[in-house]
Nucleic acid binder design. Structure first.
Length: 582
DNA sequence: GCCGTTTTCGGCCCGACTGTTTTCAGTCG
């Protein structure tokens, strides 16, 4: 039983409790337990067997009993009872902006509405406005919210959200009176998908806020205004992206940026810890009793608690607070550490630029090497290369390397398809001609989890495999990818010394950052690969670095942060270990 | 439901905004 499945069941219990009773803290305990289970790098079943589950904070007696039941039976009686008792349509109502569990219960009890459609109809027939506590505006907002849900995307990929945010932040900075402005929220934490945008801006004095806010809601990118206050406004931008802006005085900016960067879970733990030390943290500052402690910037918040600074990417309540107290936070990889690009395509297969153009683009970015990895023959849809094509391509690479000289190196690679049975798509003689081999799945996504897992493990055990490409095949917000037991794949890669790529294409970000720490614990190197099909795709590496940082990666974990000689030595070492039988 | 202790109950992050009501509850981040 995967941790994520156990977590999913506990999380669902939490949501159903929200809808069935008043004790929000009980619901939170379940959501919290779900996150704790999800964050365990070891299997919960193993933790239970070794008795270590009792030491995990957030999992009390009741939660451990639930976990035991799930592990033994695959089911949870409490969850079954809640599902039987609660209308499933009420869960969907939680997604309506401005409508929470209490008012949903009230609507259900007063009107008997069980689905979004029934609720919309109740709004149209004026039955919602008649309920005590509701009115004409609530009714209109609920109806608008239901229409918004059906017409808008709920989440957005990081890259387009970032581009839009950069435009709007620049516009906010240009508003007269604004001293500082920055994007906050999940985008600043580099989450792979974001729900909305948060931003913080500062002004010299309170009196300047209203004018700045008025200018913000009037920006050309603003489609509609949801809330407009002096210090806080909420709007919907073009493309349906919701955005919140907070305006504070400049002495509050550090605390406000920290507060609105989140995550909520990080703050709950941090503030609880601060309270134990007699310190209160809010979005305006840090206080000991009535005394306001000096906070010039975000780092001061942590320093006042005796902790190391925690980068925004790490603020997910996954052990970073304890590590900051212990001074054991990792030295995170940065874009400046990147030495080259591995896993790039050219016009030899489905790329849109020649090898020369890709190499020139890499040199312009200051990189020292480029790994060309065109598709293999099985990928006919992508004009995959035959062994004869490979020989001609490698002759071209030799000629280009001779021309470029010693300062830049084009590496001979392949993105070699993994067959249904786990075999690679080239014979050994051809595989031996490459400097390195990226092995990827592009077909037969519908096998069982056991079959896909075995398929990847067999590819890992091929002596020529250097890197497993996009290990789950997911496309964010589009498709889930094939089912795969990632802990088993990570363990196999670690045992064999094979790397797993972090595909930096913002539609993929595969391997998911939540697995990166488990991978590094197993000694699996994680190259950050752009999977670029054109020169502009190389810039995805910067996005991949953000995800790598969320996964606590250091330059030592990332082969393309290594100089060329070390990289080549590692390629040879992986192949040698493969030939020696792992 | 979990946790910690001034240790088996009481608190659980905290403040802005909205809508409805007229002092506050619900929602959100």
């Amino acid at each position: 039983m995967e941790n994520s499945r156990i977590a999913g069941m506990l999380d669902e219990v939490g949501t159903l409790i929200e809808l069935s009773e008043d004790n929000a803290f009980r619901a939170r305990a379940y959501h919290n337990a779900a996150r704790v289970v999800e964050n365990q790098t070891e299997d919960v079943a193993a933790l239970q067997a070794s008795g270590k589950l009792a030491n995990v904070a957030g999992l009390g007696k009741e939660m451990r009993a639930h976990i035991s039941e799930i592990l033994a039976t695959g089911r949870l009686t409490l969850l079954d009872e809640l599902i039987a008792a609660i209308e499933p349509g009420l869960i969907a109502m939680l997604r309506i902006p401005g409508l929470g569990p209490k008012r949903i219960r009230l609507l259900h009890q007063a009107l008997g509405v069980k689905t979004l459609d029934e609720l919309a109809e109740a709004c149209r027939t004026n039955r919602v406005a008649a309920i005590s506590g509701f009115g004409a505006k609530s009714q209109a907002n609920i109806l608008n919210g239901i229409e918004f849900l059906s017409s808008q995307q709920e989440h957005f990929n990081y890259a387009p959200a970032r581009e839009l945010a950069d435009v709007v932040i620049a516009a906010i900075r240009a508003i007269p009176g604004v001293l500082r402005a920055e994007v906050a929220g999940s985008l600043r934490r580099k989450k792979e998908v974001v729900h909305d945008l948060d931003a913080v801006a500062s002004v010299a004095q309170d009196g300047d806020r209203a004018a700045v806010m008025a200018a913000f809601v009037a920006l050309p990118q603003v489609q509609s205004v949801i809330a407009h206050g002096e210090s806080k406004s909420a709007v919907v931008l073009e493309g349906g992206v919701a955005m919140d802006l907070r305006v504070v005085t400049d002495d509050e900016y550090g605390s406000a940026l920290h507060h609105f960067t989140g995550s909520k879970e990080h703050h709950i733990v941090l503030r609880g810890m601060a309270l134990e030390r007699g310190i209160k943290i809010n979005e305006y500052g840090v206080w000991r009793g009535d005394e306001r402690l000096p906070v010039a910037n975000e780092a001061d918040v942590y320093a006042l608690l005796g902790m190391d600074y925690i980068e925004p990417e790490l603020r997910e309540e996954r052990g970073e607070i304890q590590a900051a107290l212990d001074h054991t936070l990792p030295h995170l990889v940065t874009a400046n550490d990147i030495q080259g690009a591995l896993h790039c395509h050219s016009t030899w297969s489905d790329g849109h630029a020649s090898i020369r153009e890709m190499a020139q683009a890499c040199r312009a970015l200051g990189y020292h090497y480029l790994g060309i990895c065109d598709h293999s023959q099985l990928a006919a849809y992508a004009h995959g290369l035959t062994p004869a094509d490979v020989r001609r391509q490698q002759a071209e690479i030799d000629a280009l390397n001779a021309e470029f000289g010693p300062d830049f190196r084009i590496l001979k690679g392949t993105e070699c398809d993994i067959h249904k049975d786990g075999a690679l798509d080239f014979d050994d003689a051809t595989l031996a001609t490459f400097d390195f081999v990226v092995a990827s799945i592009h077909s037969n996504f519908n096998l069982s989890e056991a079959e896909e897992t075995q398929r990847l493990i067999r590819a890992i055990q091929n002596p020529y495999t250097t890197i497993i490409g996009h290990p789950t095949g997911r496309l964010l917000l589009q498709r889930a990818g094939y089912p795969v037991d990632l802990p088993a794949v990570i363990a196999a890669a670690g045992a064999r010394g094979v790397a797993i790529e972090l595909n930096a294409n913002p539609a993929r970000f595969d391997l998911d950052w939540r697995w990166l720490r488990l991978a590094t614990e197993h000694g699996v190197p994680i190259p950050i690969c752009p999977d670029a099909h054109a020169p502009d795709g190389l810039t995805d590496i910067a996005y991949g670095v953000g995800i790598a940082r969320k996964g606590w990666l250091t330059p030592a974990n990332v082969p393309n942060a290594w100089p060329l000689d070390r990289l080549l030595a590692w390629f040879a070492e992986v192949r040698e270990r493969g030939r020696a039988g792992g």
